[in-house]
Amino acid sequence: MLTGFIGTGSMGSILIEAFIRSGELLPEEILAVNRTPSKAERLARCFPGLQLAESVTEAASRSDILFLCVKPGDYPHLLHQIAPFCREDQWVVSITSPVMVDQLEERLPGKVAKVIPSVTNYVLGGAALCIYGSRVGRKDRQRFEQFLAPISRPLEVREEHTRISSDLSSCGPAFFAFLLDKLITAAVEVSGIDREEARRMASEMLLGTGMLLTSGGMCPQDIVRRVSVPGGITEGALKLLDQELGSTFERLIEVTHAKFREDAEKVAELFAGWDSPSASDSAPSTST
């Protein structure tokens, strides 16, 4: 079985590296192509045996599972190119949230899915959010989630919850890394502690907190209750955080949802343009 990747940017390369390091895929079982060939060539140098396709159509025709790891606006042109080379027995997996499953199913044969990965998959952890098309049966889902399990915890979500699920799972690491960096910077500026020492302590704290929330069986409120003693230092700090943050996270979600809606509308407009006969007949053909 050959697993293809169209796009080897940030998330595409993370998935490739994770599949190889987990042992789920050998380099020889991966076929990659990128608009900038040097990015795919770098992966081939790091993982000898990894195959490089010369075009997206080659990747589509040879792959049993084909991951589409490109920007939302690239999808209409890409699908126009690869659709004639895709097969009914093939999986096509998009990792791009503003592209809808039905937009893919209308234009491609076979089994279609959308998977929203996370940067945490790089260390074989975190979730992979799964949304399936109508041609994917129960046994298909089980087999596909077994394929994802070595690098993530596959979680099926409804497409209408794609954005909020992505905020929690895919964007969440960046949000909390940002907050952690602010805490580390404040610690350095206020106390003079060595930055690397502060980073190590804060990183171990975050790792341990994650373990409490997963294998430790605690919820966020449990941790707050255990750490915050009435009248103590943590309680006072938490009151300040509550006052300062206010509706910050509600507004954050409003921002991500607004951007998602904007991107989804643009993708729909682009698909409409590519679906018109005049646009399709004059479409340029590119290799990546």
Rank of each mutant, 00 (worst) to 15 (best):
I116A: 04
E29W: 03
G231P: 05
P48R: 10
D140H: 03
V56C: 12
R35Y: 11
L241C: 15
E29D: 14
G4I: 08
K259M: 08
L129I: 06
L50Q: 08
L252C: 13
S191A: 10
E17A: 15
F260N: 11
H77N: 02
V190E: 15
I184Q: 04
E145S: 08
E28M: 01
V190L: 15
F85Y: 15
D64H: 05
S215L: 13
R87Y: 01
M218C: 13
G73W: 01
H257K: 12
L241P: 00
D64V: 00
R42Y: 03
E235K: 07
G236D: 05
S280G: 06
S13I: 04
F178I: 00
K39R: 15
F176A: 10
V190G: 00
L25P: 08
M201K: 04
R138Y: 02
L252T: 13
L104S: 02
L148E: 03
A44D: 09
K71V: 08
M11V: 06
K182L: 14
I193R: 10
P48C: 10
I20D: 07
M201F: 14
A264F: 07
S97P: 13
A202K: 10
I30W: 07
I131E: 05
G208E: 10
S38T: 13
S203T: 15
F271D: 11
E17Q: 15
I131A: 06
R158Y: 03
L78I: 01
A127C: 13
F147C: 03
A127D: 05
E265F: 04
E204W: 09
M218H: 13
G232T: 11
P76Y: 08
K114I: 03
P154E: 01
I95A: 09
F176D: 01
T288V: 03
T248E: 11
M11N: 08
A187W: 03
P37Q: 00
Q51E: 14
R62T: 07
E160V: 07
M201H: 10
L179N: 03
V190F: 11
G23P: 10
L238M: 15
W91S: 02
R87Q: 10
Q243M: 07
G208V: 10
S10Q: 14
P98L: 03
E244S: 11
F271P: 11
S287I: 06
F5E: 08
